[in-house]
């Protein structure tokens, strides 16, 4: 849905990730960008340049927060210090919704700093959903969880990834940040039909899309965010838009980052899919 309770009833359009190599261009040229996505953890500090930059961005642009370390799928409790700092940032940015990954990454207080896949079990779904609810209640902002790229599958899984995603978001009553590149990457690594995944996602819960590039190696596909979006991912995106309608879309480009204009132009390619989808929904 274009605007729903999971994205704060907004229709932000097409955004790009705010990255350090682009700061000078953004501040000197003030490009017309619908919105920026920030990595929350980069700004959960007490002061200095990160917050000064963020405040300048907030003067001119809408910002949506995207986290990488909440680890809803970790079996342990939520980190209260993390939540406290995150809430402070939420108040600063006034992000209409907040996203993080459907993954785990810490255990017994030790952090891997990675987005590790969750075994698709009912126990994991219950724990993950409870933590999403707790975070949303504390942060007082809608939360959407992102499907991750994965390279491993668990023997103990009791359902498919898309069934697990549905189980979690229904239990948590939260939104979905649907990363179509991640669906593609995981489908290559695990041999499933990406359209089957897409058709199983409840369109009413989709708060945002991610698109990105990846790298193909001899024996696996890696989610590297260092290339343009490939045609099969655009095809998935077109299908996702057709199902969900005009929804906030964000291009991720995190490594070997080209000039801002190039990144923005790649993101704007999404525009050609959106009006058709809007017409279909109408």
């Amino acid at each position: 849905m274009p605007a729903n309770k999971f994205n704060g009833f907004t229709d932000l359009g097409i955004g790009v990730g705010l990255r350090i190599p682009h700061y000078d261009h953004i501040f000197s040229q003030a490009p017309a960008v619908d919105w920026f996505e920030i990595i929350s953890e980069n700004f959960m500090v007490d002061g200095g340049r990160p917050l000064a930059v963020l405040d300048r961005i907030l003067e001119q642009y809408r910002v949506v927060q995207h986290g990488v370390s909440m680890y809803f799928g970790s079996a342990g409790r939520l980190n209260r210090e993390h939540l406290r700092r995150l809430k402070s940032l939420v108040r600063r940015t006034k992000t209409p919704w907040l996203t993080d990954h459907l993954c785990w990454g810490s255990v017994d207080g030790k952090y891997t700093h990675d987005l590790l896949p969750i075994p698709y079990t009912f126990e994991a779904a219950k724990i993950t959903a409870r933590k999403i609810r707790e975070a949303r209640d504390f942060l007082e902002v809608p939360i959407a969880v992102e499907n991750v790229s994965s390279y491993a599958e668990f023997k103990m899984s009791q359902m498919t990834e898309w069934e697990f995603l549905g189980e979690v978001v229904e239990r948590a009553d939260c939104g979905v940040l649907l990363d179509v590149n991640n669906i593609y990457v995981s489908s290559r690594n695990h041999g499933f039909d990406p359209m089957a995944y897409l058709s199983a996602v409840d369109p009413a819960r989709v708060a945002q899309f991610h698109i990105a590039g990846h790298s193909q190696f001899e024996k696996y596909t890696l989610d590297t965010h260092d290339h343009p979006v490939i045609d099969p991912v655009w095809a998935l995106y077109a299908e996702a838009v057709a199902r969900c309608g005009r929804t906030a879309t964000l291009l991720e480009w995190d490594d070997r980052i080209p000039p801002f204009e190039e990144v923005h132009a790649e993101a704007r390619k999404a525009e050609k899919y959106l009006p058709e989808a809007a017409a279909e929904c109408a």
């Binding site: 390279y151 491993a152 599958e153 668990f154 023997k155 695990h190 024996k219 696996y220």
Partner: peptide, 16 residues
């Protein structure tokens, strides 16, 4: 972990 047609379970873990 399970293997797939190209990678053993250990290979898949080693990506992480």
């Amino acid at each position: 972990l399970t293997p797939n047609t190209l990678l053993t379970a250990a290979d898949r873990l080693d990506i992480y």
